[in-house]
Design a protein around this nucleic acid. Structure first.
Length: 286
DNA sequence: TCACCTTGGTTTAGAGCAAG
DNA sequence: CTTGCTCTAAACCAAGGTGA
């Protein structure tokens, strides 16, 4: 299959039409003629870039309260150019060496159009039933020919991130327990594709940041804990119920992360100091 | 000077917790 | 269900202070 045909096949599964030209350019294609926007809404989607005028303008049922375009405590010239991506992965298990990603979602904290990216991923293996019970992601849902493998999503993801990145500035990826869970999983998938994560990608673990918050006394509602739900409760963020779907968790973490950075008076420099280089997770030699 | 006690720092082991 | 990180308590050791 030619790379262009493959791109179009994948692109047909993307809901939004807006970023197609941009993604094509970043993915190295010279023309967007073969991408037909009319087909987007007709297909079962597995990958989508959300097209909203703002984080608050996604329409009924999709309004995200509490998320504002991100600003650091002490503004500096770096703040305007920092690209901060909140992300989350759903997987087939805990340990990245034996398991695969089945869903990936991210949100650019700067907001604006096309600020989200989410996709199901074909893990090419069964999803354990006890995990399907947690996140409703079943083997039948993801192990299908029209669900892209990570290797298929990779060029789109790289192109998307590049389209959000300020040239010459790093991309800061934030996830809860990123250090031991999300980042190693992502690195493992890159390794499986024999790909190297860009050197200017940095990973920040919001769990590590949360541990720096003042400790609360133990309570029946468990708001002294540091998981996402507990932190949401702590900051008065409404939680319907633990979703364990990537984009829902990303949305929750967006709000939690902004409050943590505010609480800790974290600056851009402080955040970078907390970060781990993407290359520290990868085993693929440069 | 020696023995004993207290204090402070370091190391170690185990529990708790975070993620799907 | 797994793995790894962090925290805490206990154990250990060295140094310093005090009294006989």
């Amino acid at each position: 299959m030619s790379s262009l045909l493959r791109f179009n096949k994948l692109r047909n599964n993307i809901w939004s039409s807006c970023p197609s030209r941009l993604l094509m350019q970043h993915a190295g294609f010279s023309s967007a003629k073969n991408v037909d926007p009319r087909s987007y809404g007709k297909r079962h989607f597995t990958t989508r870039v959300q097209e909203t005028d703002s984080l608050h303008g996604a329409g009924p049922g999709s309004c995200i309260s509490g998320i504002q375009p991100f600003r650091f405590q002490q503004t500096s010239e770096h703040d305007r150019s920092a690209t901060i991506l909140i992300f989350d992965t759903e997987t087939t298990g805990y340990f990245h060496k034996n398991n695969r990603i089945v869903e990936f979602a991210l949100r650019d904290l700067s907001g604006g159009k096309n600020s989200t990216f989410e996709t199901l991923i074909n893990p090419e293996r069964d999803v354990p039933k006890f995990l399907s019970a947690v996140n409703n992601i079943t083997t039948a849902l993801v192990c299908r020919p029209d669900v892209p493998r990570f290797g298929d999503v990779l060029p789109l993801l790289l192109a998307y991130v590049r389209s959000r990145q300020t040239p010459g500035k790093p991309v800061i990826w934030v996830a809860h327990n990123a250090k031991t869970f999300d980042a190693p999983f992502l690195a493992q998938e890159f390794d499986r594709c024999s790909a190297q994560m860009p050197e200017d990608w940095l990973f920040v673990d919001s769990l590590r940041l949360a541990r720096k918050l003042p400790k609360l006394p133990k309570s029946d509602e468990n708001i002294h804990l540091l998981n996402l739900v507990a932190l949401s409760k702590r900051y008065g963020i409404s939680v319907e119920k633990p979703a364990h779907r990537a984009m829902q968790d990303v949305t929750m973490l967006c709000q939690v992360f902004q409050r943590i950075t505010f609480h800790l008076k974290l600056t851009y420099e402080g955040l970078v100091n907390e970060a781990i280089k993407a290359t520290d997770f990868s085993k693929v030699p440069k």
